[in-house]
Design a protein around this nucleic acid. Structure first.
Lengths: 393, 393
DNA sequence: TAAAATTTGTTAGTTATTTTAACTAAGTAA
DNA sequence: TTACTTAGTTAAAATAACTAACAAATTTTA
């Protein structure tokens, strides 16, 4: 019930200040009250009072003394990362990956479940519930200490009317998934699509930590992007931001209103396979197409070289268009793109510097499979770590 | 000096609440204290106190009584739009347009100056100063009542180190323009490029008023876009957001590192002229190219029809790419695009609904030439209307 | 027509929270 | 050993919002 509208009362200020202190402590562990006062621009007595309160609540701990700076030694404080726990879950195809993490977002335990086929809403919910039980048991974490669960689903996640959503590829059409999970598990739920979750993962604990705006570009079955602007995930007005697979890049087939967009039709993993096969190249659908093309080119196949170049050109075009619109600080390449070698990266950077006036820093994703889980966990921390404090105070 | 970091004191709360009241009153004039209390969720005594303060400062006025709703008649309050004034200025080629507005952003007086050629920094500054004097004199507004000036400049405006900026096409390379204007006029300055100013103009008082995210697309010498996300202008990490002229749309010439991007090379006004001329069409560079093509097509020229279609296709591609990334609530077409007729608009909407999953509302710009001035004025109101209150209290 | 009810606005007192100033604690340096 | 520093606490002052009660002005109702 904090600051609903544009006006606030004095309690809101206290909440803000508590969060400010916690924020500092999360960024820079082992700070004294005096240092906190300086960094938060609050008076020392105020910091002392708030800190005492949060120590009582178990959110902060005193952890010994630091070096003297010419006077009394400071008492160092630390964010108590074990005060509570958060759970992250990611559905991917017929797999469910789940983990508990501490309040810093560090994974404590992780389990993996294979869902019964075909997946429907009920079986997915059941799996979620059972796996959560198993996870908490093995990790020895009390259920009361879990402040929420973040769930990543494939496909577009609509948030109309609260937490209604659907994920086409698993057959959960238009189910109020968020609410159902919430009721079933009796836990606050943060729901988002897989790319948004991975984006948050890389942003909070991967290649993108520290920047204030980034684009996370994922090439897989389709092509999508997650966007962080001003340290916040940007979802768009219809939850459809970052649907860059619909860009007009490459050959556009005559047909209209396709399920896939032109860009992803041409340059997703499946699209590249199609191109490779139509060129008569021998490729294995089980392994990375990019790695195979690179290997073929090294072995002297000019066809593979041509296709590789076309792929770089296509991907770079997608990047150029996105960067032209957003001018992000950083761009993170993931999915199939993580198999880019040095030469490929250089080629893409080269094309970009020819094409656009400002080229952002471009990096490969650092977290790989863990990105989604990491993001799910952090999305809960972002959404609920302040509300948890509110209900305690 | 308000809320520098993430923490706040009680004064900050008061500031917030004052702004909340003012905000309500700006949106909906003629509200009573009781209604304000209900809308801002503040207690009636609190509202009364804040309102009294602001009446004394001249920010609010009592304007008679309203209809009874079964009890005592309410005393209606109104935002005093004439308490202060703001100035907007827009440089465009060798012209300088300038206006004063009240606190609601309504233009009170407007003047126009032709700059000496060639334009350099000094002569532009001189013109700015002289025109401001003339404007204030004719409008009879006291200089002390002006809270700031918004200046729109052509080209990319960089804000590195405060307000350093450059505007290539007027020859102001890398001058600390913001600071210089500030010193010269002794007024707070808000500097931005022309497209951003026009975007804010349409957002605050034109086709885009009320939405929370929009893209303003301008086709002129080049092609650019202004982006509003979450009710805020988004400038990008290097002030280069919305540089959609660099998208990869249409024929890309062999040359690298051009001044212009591929999209604008093909589909800016100049680009379309080039295409028209190479097709042997008779076009006059002084009038709207789009209108001429439409007329030629109506007169039965198949070549003009083909080109027109190509232009629609190109513009729609730019829109599709932008929309794929941002998923805005609304898209405003301006510059040469305002000459689109109904058929053209329909064609573009048709292409979009074939290409992208979510099509935003698409409108033509409503403000035309006044957009820049309007935006300049509103950018000052946004930036300084709260600080003016702060220094009063 | 008078009393009751309702809505608006104010007054007085309470509460919550931060700040300032002074003070204690615990160290370093000369 | 004394002076100076830095860390942290205490107590009082300041600020600003809230609650409760009341006054003022109207409408509704008996």
């Amino acid at each position: 019930m904090i600051s609903k509208g544009r006006t606030g009362n004095t309690k809101f200020v206290k909440q803000m200040n508590r969060e400010g202190i916690l924020h500092q402590l999360r960024q820079e562990p082992r700070l004294s009250r005096a240092e906190l006062a300086a960094k938060t621009r609050l008076s020392r007595p105020c910091v002392s009072a708030l800190v005492e309160e949060m120590i009582e609540e178990g959110l902060i701990q005193e952890v010994g003394t630091g070096e003297s700076k010419g006077g009394r030694k400071p008492i160092l404080l630390e964010y108590n990362v074990q005060a509570y726990a958060v759970v992250g879950a990611v559905f991917e195809g017929s797999e469910l990956e789940m983990a508990v993490a501490d309040m810093k977002g560090e994974l404590i335990a992780q389990v993996h479940t294979r869902l019964k086929q075909p997946v429907d809403g009920e079986s997915a919910l059941e799996a979620l519930e059972a796996t959560l039980g198993r996870l908490l048991e093995t990790s020895g974490i009390d259920r009361d200490r879990v402040i929420g669960i973040g769930v990543g689903l494939p496909g577009i996640t609509r948030r109309l009317r609260g937490t209604v959503s659907y994920a086409p590829s698993t057959g959960w059409m238009d189910l109020p998934v968020g609410k159902e999970i919430e009721e079933r598990l009796n836990l606050p739920v943060v729901l988002d699509n897989d790319v948004n979750m991975m984006t948050q993962g890389e942003y909070f604990g991967g290649a993108g930590s520290g920047v204030s705006s980034l684009v996370y570009m994922y090439v897989g079955t389709g092509i999508g992007a997650g966007i962080i602007i001003d340290k916040q995930l940007y979802r768009g007005s219809n939850e459809a931001s970052g649907e860059i697979g619909y860009m007009r890049i490459g050959d556009s087939p005559g047909r209209r209103k396709e399920e896939f967009g032109v860009f992803e039709k041409n340059f997703s993993v499946a699209g590249i396979y199609r191109k490779a096969e139509s060129l008569g190249l021998q490729v294995d659908p089980g392994a990375s197409i990019l790695e195979q093309l690179i290997k073929l080119e090294e072995e002297g196949s000019p066809l593979a070289g041509t296709l590789l170049n076309e792929v770089y050109h296509g991907w770079a075009s997608g990047i150029a268009n996105t960067v032209s619109v957003l001018d992000p600080e950083m761009l993170i390449l993931s999915g199939e793109m993580v198999h880019l070698n040095e030469a490929g990266l250089i080629r893409i950077r080269e094309l970009l510097s020819d094409w656009v006036p400002v080229v952002p820093e471009i990096r490969l994703a650092a977290l790989h499979e863990r990105a989604g889980l990491f993001g799910a966990v952090h999305s809960v921390l972002e959404t609920h770590s302040s509300s948890i404090m509110a209900y305690k105070s």
